[in-house]
Nucleic acid binder design. Structure first.
Lengths: 159, 159
DNA sequence: CGCCATATAGTGTATATGCATTATTAAAGG
DNA sequence: CCTTTAATAATGCATATACACTATATGGCG
């Protein structure tokens, strides 16, 4: 019969990294969406295009694995990017899979978007402190791996 | 004309807390969704119901503010919970706003769900280390505030 | 050559998310 | 009492997310 009072619930809310992770992702995404809006680009679309640029020629499955997203989600998100002409997905289908790459239009858009991202990043680092940003990224990465040990490093810097 | 090579893109991907925050939120959400599936509950629904229990009698706007979610999103998510009979939203409309509360059915469901959450939490802490979990939560909170300085502490433990 | 096992892409459905906008309602002022 | 004003809830639209399932194509094997 549920012996939970408001304080018990508050404790759970405060202790759950899932609450925090979703709330933080929402906040940062709203922040970046506002930055990219003038370019007609969402934060996730920017992420995806950078991911494609980083692994030029990768298949959908490979990109999904490195980005930590389901292949069916990625399939639809890629379709959105293709419709806009920013991304090209072709090459042999089947075992080999489609090869993803940025179009010239896509690269041009990113050439505009990346300075915007740099400024947003600098502002974030200013508010948070440069060290704390590094710190936060490491904590996020550790959390993701703890939640899904099977997942790879989620686009870790390889060097 | 876009002098960006794969390595430049990888650097951006590795430096962007937005990428990481979304990927981490997805991973934790998948993890919790799997835990709650036998109960017919999603991770976000659990979060929401705990949030309602923590601020019993709050209005939609107040809950949206404390959870760091848009009121229109919350409106629809609450409707889902109402349809299932887990949450009740009534009381004077207008300036005062509807008052949100858990139904008996909702409290009973949470009585089943909270032990599941505790176990998931313990497993996460085991994989990550107890100190690192605290650390990660603090980093997430700091990031959310940096991204949206106007937002309150996002369901901080008040004491 | 044709069948089968496997991997890959895509659909159906449901939830989650937020901006722009509309509907509703309570309070304030004359 | 009526009108204006402001707050609140909800809707339209588009994107994002993932599980269950389907479609398709590839490569191996008899």
């Amino acid at each position: 019969m549920s012996g939970f009072d408001p304080h018990a619930f508050r404790t759970i809310a405060a202790e759950c990294p899932g609450f925090q992770a979703r709330a933080t992702a929402r906040a940062i995404t709203r922040y970046h969406n506002a930055c990219f809006r003038p370019l007609g680009l969402t934060a996730e679309q920017f992420s995806l295009m950078v991911g494609i640029g980083a692994t030029e020629g990768a298949t959908l499955v490979e990109l999904a694995l490195s980005a930590g997203v389901d292949t069916t989600t990625l399939s639809r998100n890629i379709q959105n990017l293709e419709k806009r002409g920013w991304v090209c997905a072709d090459g042999g289908r089947g075992r080999a899979g489609k090869r993803l790459s940025l179009t010239v239009l896509g690269r041009n858009l990113l050439a505009d978007a990346i300075p915007v991202w740099r400024q947003a990043q600098a502002e974030l680092a200013r508010r948070l402190g440069d060290g704390d940003l590094q710190w936060a990224r490491r904590a996020l990465s550790a959390l993701a791996i703890a939640a899904e040990p099977s997942s790879p490093g989620v686009l870790e810097d390889a060097e």
